[in-house]
Nucleic acid binder design. Structure first.
Lengths: 353, 353
DNA sequence: TTGAAAGCGCTACCAA
DNA sequence: TTGGTAGCGCTTTCAA
């Protein structure tokens, strides 16, 4: 084994061409399986490349006009396990497609302008966004420079496509479930009023409640965090038993977990005295002590469709900016008293699951 | 061929030079504040660049020999909130240093070789690793190509530097705490036997127990997950009360949470009948229903020191590969019965915190 | 089927 | 203080 000395001098098409006694263009073609290279020469060059451990310089390749293979990724606050799980899925599927991820942002708050610049500086092929807080200025930068944008778990605004769960349907599904179980006094714990996921889920829920002729649900919350869910739970627990809702839908699992933690800490039994359901289907909510009944988002499908949209727009396909809505699936847990017929749901959140 | 939709034609040093009536080299220097450019010309060029929305092409800049500004990031399984929190910190600190992150891996299992190749293909300046499972082949690739490697939360092996919490000390600290509280029968719930974090914490704990003349702690576990912690908790709950440990240290918070969930589900009170402590200091463990007593890792300091090490090695400073050990801080919660003197700890994990 | 040469956008070196 | 020019590593005409 040859001991590598100082700055590892990496092989290039030129060095390979020289050693193989051919032109650089021949090396370039052979390495990318261009059909008009004789099998003999191709084999020789490929073998040589492997021997010297040649790695193509993607930067140079991109410079001459190719794709960078880079996809920007903007994540929301990771306190919410949903984003963590989404990220993991994105990483897995990106690798499967041979795309590399540039992690631009993770956390609360808007993405800085300097960060958005990176999209251009590195000639990123496209960008995946899971937080609404890409500043409009940053969005404008992308639009002006034709960087395809796809949002996951958010409906798109001016520019870009989006894939999202059918949040209205999810809210309606849960409303039906709770109403069928006989619950009459209902409540909704909401997230940020500015995010489509929160408002749509609440809307779908409330509409169904209205259609059932029940009084409108009590609405509390206003932020998508465990802490806010906890506060909401305490609020509910403080209500006189006669006024307290019999069932509550939190617009996200993290909120639902907070609600459950607060209720139980306050001595209110879940689901004994109050039923709690959520939306998202995150891992921690599947386990003790929650065993949450929820609508699980089809994470893998969402990410795949998001990448499909991105790929289409990267190919400059003249398709409309589109919004793909995927249906979530009901996961029955033990956090809500349900109608016996509903206890045999698709997914199960319980100790045996 | 179909006419390709015009990609936005971006400004370049050449186009700026032409419009400004100067040479490209002058533009290049002006834009990077080279001192030997007259203020007048510099201003004019900078204004022009701003006017046309010029963005430098980092790829080209890197090609001529500069740094890519790219740092590779390898994460462990995100089921564990510790990795999610670590990631968020890494993103924040990287942005502050003007570095871009290339997210190579997130999840369990080893990093694929194809992924490791990206480090070379994109001329990444360095790589941050938080999972031990960078395959040795991938590590060899980095070593051979002089890509600086820094591990966080793991001790380094052959190649690269590392920054980690003083895990032995953390284990010892918790042992002292529990022993001082009067606990005599102790247990340890371990993670993977192959990760330094798990073994070191268990070692530090066990050594202190031995020094106190107590019988060696019961050891169960073997995997760093909530599920395994839950299983361990069930095992403990099934023990006859006379044999059951009075206190248990889990080597991570996620394990501790699993243990607590299982014990409580089995009707064993925590901390009433058994005390539980963990290590890491993750967010969810700070909240209801855990309020975990734990040793919190100094996340920000760890990331900062990790970046410092990376920066030093990127500058080719001839320093030794080093291991930086940072001390964690005790966070007192309500998951363990403690000596009254210890209840006034540094951090607090409680509803009022 | 292969080669020669012209760049991609940028920086660095050497002159002026 | 500025300009010209030679590449960085790669792909891609255009010729042979």
């Amino acid at each position: 084994m040859a001991p590598p000395v100082s700055k590892a001098v990496r092989a290039t098409v030129a060095s390979l061409a020289e050693r193989a006694g051919v032109a650089t263009s021949t090396v370039s073609r052979a390495l990318r399986n261009d059909p008009r290279i004789s099998a003999e020469v191709r084999q020789r060059i490929i073998a040589l490349a492997a021997e010297v451990g040649y790695t193509p310089n993607v930067l140079a390749r991109t410079l001459v006009g190719g794709n960078s293979g880079l996809v920007g990724l903007v994540l929301g606050p990771i306190e919410n396990p949903f984003y963590a799980e989404l990220m993991q899925m994105v990483v897995a599927r990106a690798a499967a497609r041979g795309w590399r991820l540039m992690l631009l942002h993770a956390g609360p708050g808007p993405i800085e302008e300097a960060t958005a610049e990176a999209l251009l500086q590195y000639r990123v092929d496209g960008c995946l966004i899971t937080s609404a807080e890409l500043s409009s200025r940053a969005a404008a930068i992308c639009a002006a420079n034709k960087v395809p944008l796809v949002m996951i778990n958010r409906v798109a605004w001016e520019h870009g496509s989006a894939v999202s769960c059918d949040n209205q349907a999810a809210g309606a599904l849960l409303a039906d479930l709770l109403i069928r179980a006989g619950h009459r006094r209902l409540a909704v714990v909401t997230g940020f009023a500015t995010t489509s996921t929160s408002t749509e889920r609440a809307e779908g829920f409330s509409r169904r409640v209205a259609e059932a002729g029940l009084p409108p649900p009590l609405c509390i919350g206003g932020e998508n965090s465990h802490a806010r869910g906890f506060a909401a739970g305490m609020q509910l627990a403080a209500l006189p038993a006669a006024e307290r809702p019999e069932a509550v839908m939190a617009v996200s699992d993290i909120l639902a977990m907070g609600v459950m933690d607060a209720l139980r800490e306050a001595g209110v039994s879940v689901p004994g005295e109050i039923s709690v359901v959520g939306v998202d289907g995150v891992m921690p909510a599947r386990r003790a002590p929650y065993y949450l009944t929820t609508v699980s988002q089809p994470l893998e499908a969402m990410v795949e469709r998001g990448f499909d949209l991105l790929a289409a727009r990267m190919r400059d396909e003249p398709r409309e900016e589109e919004v793909v809505l995927l249906r979530g699936s009901l996961t029955i847990g033990r956090s809500a008293r349900l109608h016996p017929d509903d206890l045999a749901g698709n997914g199960q959140n319980g100790p045996e699951a």
